[in-house]
Design a protein around this nucleic acid. Structure first.
Lengths: 254, 254
DNA sequence: CGAGCGGTTTGATCTGCATCAACAAGAAGC
DNA sequence: GCTTCTTGTTGATGCAGATCAAACCGCTCG
């Protein structure tokens, strides 16, 4: 584990507030590992022994069942993953594989669990982190149940543009097939969805998305802070979408 | 708030381990409320001011967007809901309405947040609770992405039968239209799915489900501890499903 | 440089599920 | 009691999105 890693990790909300001493102890137990691309480093169902911290590279979290599989998330530096499984000392619900060569720091789950018993600040950070994770999955599930695939693509483009600083143009952060699977559709359908959005303010050139008419796109996407985040909070005041109220006759969906 | 409520609440994993003193303080701040049926008590997007504890009745958690809506969960006594929003001091991601007349105890989110700063045991319980919630939604999302609606119905029946003590027959715990929406399909489609399962070991009589051939049903449902729970843990050893390995050619799904 | 290969796109077709409509069966209200 | 409303079921039809197939990239690698 490199010296410059520590300050990076220390900046994460999860580790920011704990005591310097406990942080050091945790880092003592940790070690770094570099994985080549396309390596399945975590297999769902196995016991969760380590909290993983992405330092460099890209990792896909996915799940399989009966020969089908779907990507649940794509993780980028610097962030942690599979916190919940470590806490519960339970089997991983998702598998993980590297998309590209990745450097990852692993903290033994045992030390993790010992530490938030010792350090109340770390316990607090863990609570906040888990609440964020939970809300993030709820949003994802809402999107799957309430939006059509075209709407999900439109909403994704709105969201990414916003994350990139509300720019009209940005580069897709991952392969389209991963994105398609994450959004709950086939690559073919994703491709068609993007193409069909060209009449609604989206242009595409390879991996670059250009929003030509934000109003038109938002009319499709119906961006909603309760599905597309981010959470309104003290840290990012005003970084929120409007919570539109709809009064038309409600009907149950999908 | 009734006297006999306290011991009931105290039994919940979330409140079980905190100090008696802090528990009392928290209960001082709480108050009970009774809602009639079909009352929308929480509207998504509003600030989360109270942790809710179901004492009697049934509550549906649902989400709406653009006039569509879908049920995310159905809550029964004795349990808590919308913990994450309270912690984050963020808007509710879901609405809640009573399905029947319900008695609910409400704890101010402010007191809640103050308490797990005071009580390390309560912080630990909160961590565990949130990890459970998170894993539960991940399971739900996996089911939506990996299974067809017929498979979801089959898996639901397996799961309920297991929860009822692995009995061959049980009563559906909620209206079929709620169940359908929770499982991500229309009532019509749910009805047809159940009917189509009659050739695979399921009989239905009104609200009663009878499993006539468990093996056949499981062949459809493919029950999997990573989707259908419960978590393997020290409390319920061996209460787990087999984690079947599939080696056929994997393909990306929906 | 050309061959091979995985990712992407496009087209044709199929199908699972939603939608629409009609009706039956309870449950609630007058 | 009868009416009215809600839920559940069944049938007919339509459509979103999956599947299958082929062509077209933009790679890497010999």
């Amino acid at each position: 584990m490199r010296d410059q890693d520590k300050p990076e990790i220390r900046k994460l909300p999860l580790f920011r507030d704990m005591s310097a001493e406990n942080f050091e102890t945790l880092m003592q137990a940790a070690y770094a590992q570099t994985f080549p691309a396309q390596l399945e480093m975590i297999r769902q169902g196995e016991p969760a022994d380590f909290l993983h911290i992405m330092m460099e590279g890209t990792v896909e979290l996915f799940s399989g069942w009966r020969g089908r599989e779907t990507t649940m998330a794509v993780v980028r530096p610097v962030s942690t993953f599979i916190l919940a499984a470590c806490i519960k000392d339970a089997p991983y619900l998702m598998s993980a594989r590297t998309v590209e060569k990745s450097r990852i720091i692993m903290i033994p789950a045992k030390d993790l669990r010992a530490t938030f018993r010792l350090d109340p600040e770390f316990a607090m950070s863990t609570i906040t982190e888990l609440a964020n994770c939970y809300r993030s999955v709820v949003r994802h599930a809402k999107g799957l149940k309430l939006r059509t695939s075209r709407e999900r693509v439109a909403a994704y483009i709105c969201r990414q543009s916003r994350l990139a600083g509300s720019t009209a143009s940005f580069i897709l952060p991952m392969e389209k097939r991963l994105l398609a699977s994450y959004l709950g559709m086939t690559p073919e359908n994703f491709s068609r969805a993007v193409k069909s959005l060209q009449t609604d303010g989206v242009a595409i050139d390879g991996m670059r998305i250009i929003i030509t008419d934000l109003k038109a796109l938002e009319a499709i996407a119906g961006p909603d802070s309760l599905m597309d985040g981010p959470d309104a909070n003290a840290e990012f005041p005003g970084a929120d979408f409007p919570d539109v109220q709809w009064s038309d006759k409600q009907r149950r969906t999908s």
